[in-house]
C-alpha cells in the first residue's frame, strides 16, 4: 500500500513531503521503522507518527476470528461434490470438498479430462449449482459430458438445464487466467441476484502446466512467484466462494541420485506440490505393454490428502465409471 495525503488527519501534505524525502513511500516502509527514531529524524510530532501507525495497522491487519465461528461457517457452506465415480468418491472420502483444491496428475490419455467431465456433470446434478470449466485447449467435449449425464438422457429439459449450468471458457495464457479468476471472484461477491456464473460449486482448470511452461526459463524467481501466486488465487477462490477447485497436471520423470527405475511424479515442481489439498496420480494399468487398444483400467493413487490416509490406491474403469473393483 502506498502512502497518500489525507489517509488520516495526521497525514497532511507537510508530513507526506517529509516522509517522501526520507525515502518512505509505502506503508511497509513506515511500519518497519521505529516510531521514536522516525519522529526524531523527520522532526515531526511523536504523537502524529503513532496515530498514522495505528491507522495503517488497523487497515492492513487481518481481524482475528474465533475457531467456533469458522467451524460454523464451514458447516453451513461445506458441500461434498460427488465425482460421479464411486471409486474416486471412496478415494477422496466422499468426493470433492468445497474450499479445497484437488489435483489430478497423469500422463496423456490416462483419463484426466474424462474425470473432469464426470465431476462437472455430477456438480450440476443439483438444481441450483453450476460449474465453470477453464481450459486452454478446448478439450471440453459434448459427447463425453452427455455420456456422463446418461442417467437423465431421456429427459431433454433436464439435460438442457444441466448443460446450461456448465460454463466453459478458453483462456490462452496465465495472465488471462488471473484476470478471469479475479472477475469470477468480483462478480460472485456482489450482493446482487445470481451473477452470470450462477451458484458456483466447482471450478475446473485443465492442464495447468500448459499455462506455466511458456513463462518458465531465464527468470526463475519471477516464474516461481507467478506459480505460487496462481496457487494462492485458486485457494482464495476456493475459500472465499466456497467452491471446489479441480486442476489437472502432467507427470515428469525423476532422475538422479542413483535412480535407475523411471519413477514419475507430478509436474510443476516442489513449490506447487505444497499447494493442492488433495493429489491423485493416475496410471494406466499395463501402460508399458505395447498392446492396442490398451485396457481401460486406470490405477488412481491418492498421494496427498486432508482426509484420508495416504498412499491409497484404487482401480477405476474409464469406460464404465460405476464399475467397482
Amino acid at each position: 500500500m502506498a502512502l497518500k495525503v489525507g489517509m488520516c488527519t495526521a497525514m497532511n501534505a507537510e508530513m507526506f513531503t517529509k516522509l517522501e524525502t526520507a525515502g518512505i513511500a509505502s506503508a511497509v516502509d513506515f511500519i518497519s521503522r521505529d516510531p521514536e527514531v522516525l519522529s526524531r529524524e523527520l522532526n515531526v510530532a511523536y504523537k502524529d507518527v503513532c496515530s498514522i501507525r495505528r491507522v495503517l495497522l488497523a487497515e492492513l491487519c487481518a481481524h482475528p476470528v474465533s475457531a467456533l465461528k469458522l467451524y460454523e461457517d464451514a458447516l453451513s457452506s461445506l458441500t461434498i461434490l460427488s465425482t460421479g465415480c464411486s471409486v474416486l468418491d471412496q478415494l477422496l472420502d466422499g468426493g470433492l470438498y468445497t474450499g479445497e483444491l484437488t489435483e489430478l496428475a497423469g500422463d496423456t490419455a490416462t483419463g484426466k479430462t474424462r474425470i473432469c467431465h464426470w465431476c462437472a456433470a455430477a456438480a450440476v446434478k443439483n438444481d441450483l449449482s453450476s460449474a465453470l470449466y477453464i481450459d486452454m485447449g478446448g478439450s471440453f467435449d459434448i459427447p463425453t459430458i452427455l455420456d456422463a449425464m446418461a442417467e437423465v438422457a431421456g429427459d431433454q429439459a433436464a439435460v438442457q438445464s444441466r448443460l446450461r449450468r456448465i460454463k466453459c471458457l478458453q483462456v490462452f495464457d496465465v495472465f488471462q487466467l488471473f484476470a478471469l479468476l479475479e472477475k469470477v471472484m468480483a462478480d460472485s461477491s456482489k450482493e446482487e441476484l445470481p451473477s452470470e456464473w450462477g451458484n458456483l460449486k466447482l471450478v475446473i482448470v485443465e492442464n495447468l502446466p500448459l499455462f506455466i511452461y511458456p513463462i518458465m526459463g531465464a527468470n526463475a524467481p519471477y516464474n516461481q512467484g507467478i506459480l505460487s501466486r496462481l496457487g494462492l488465487k485458486l485457494k482464495q477462490l476456493a475459500g472465499s466462494l466456497s467452491v471446489a477447485v479441480l486442476v489437472t497436471n502432467s507427470l515428469v520423470s525423476m532422475y538422479g541420485q542413483g535412480r535407475t527405475d523411471q519413477q514419475r511424479k507430478a509436474a510443476l515442481g516442489r513449490v506447487w506440490s505444497h499447494v493442492p489439498h488433495n493429489r491423485i496420480i493416475l496410471n494406466r494399468v499395463g501402460s508399458d505393454s505395447a498392446g492396442f487398444p490398451r485396457p481401460t483400467e486406470v490405477e488412481a493413487t491418492l498421494v496427498k490428502s486432508s482426509h484420508q490416509q495416504t498412499p491409497f490406491t484404487a482401480t477405476l474403469n474409464l469406460a464404465d465409471r460405476d464399475a467397482s473393483t
Binding site: I142, L163, L169, K183
Partner: peptide, 25 residues
C-alpha cells in the same frame, strides 16, 4: 487493457455454457 478484457469476459460473449457448445457441436 487487462481490466477491459476482464470486463469483456463478463459480457456474455466469452463464457459459453455447455448447452451453447452442444448447439455449436
Amino acid at each position: 487493457e487487462d481490466v477491459n478484457t476482464c470486463l469483456q469476459i463478463s459480457g456474455e460473449c466469452v463464457a459459453k455454457s455447455a448447452f451453447d457448445l452442444l448447439c455449436a457441436e
